[in-house]
Amino acid sequence: MSPEIARLLVEALGQTLYMVAAAGLIGTALGLPLGVFLATSGRGELFEAVALNRVLGLVVNATRSTPFIILVVAIIPFTRLVAGTSIGTTAAIVPLTVAATPFIARIIEAAIREVDAGLIEASRAMGATPLQIVGKVLLPEALPAIVLGLTLTAVSLIGYSAMVGAVGGGGLGDLGIRFGYQRFMPEVMAAVVIVLIALVQAVQSLGDWIARRVNRRLRSA
């Protein structure tokens, strides 16, 4: 492999990491409160708001049912509004975040719903406010599931990021398509695939390790 290709590979890896990290962080910042709200605003729940819960649920489902490549081009005007341009690595963060947010929200929602309802009742009996219940009980208890869910999100985002080459986002997937496929350079394709496998493996291992660290449930005495 020429030094030129190696340089492109490193650059593409950097772009992928940048896009995935930024979309993951912003997506979590938006998806976390959204997920908490979805999990706690049903009938008879802490922040009961049934109508809003339904509407947000529909929006989340609609976003999640749109194929990512369609989403990327469909929201180009929105991307331009937010990022100032619709082309490039930074601009690609916008559709990635839009895809990640509802995904993370559903993961957080599911993790919180897994928390034993008896704990919510016990906290209420202790005189906890709804916000205290979320902050001191629900999120800490759901943390292992949330960490695993966010790991899953990161892996999905790595996959999605391969598609943002369509809007000049760059990254590993784009490198593989443009050089490995379009310029008939199978060694580039192989290198891209190997780096992607290693990256996903590393992310998953890190996520598993953190989840184990924060999970106090299955510890042996």
């Binding site: 008896g118 704990l119 009742e121 016990a122 009996a125 202790m126 800490p140």
Partner: peptide, 11 residues
């Protein structure tokens, strides 16, 4: 209040 299934936080 105390509970049949203890309702302790596992974390």
């Amino acid at each position: 209040m105390i509970f049949q299934h203890f309702a302790l936080l596992s974390s």
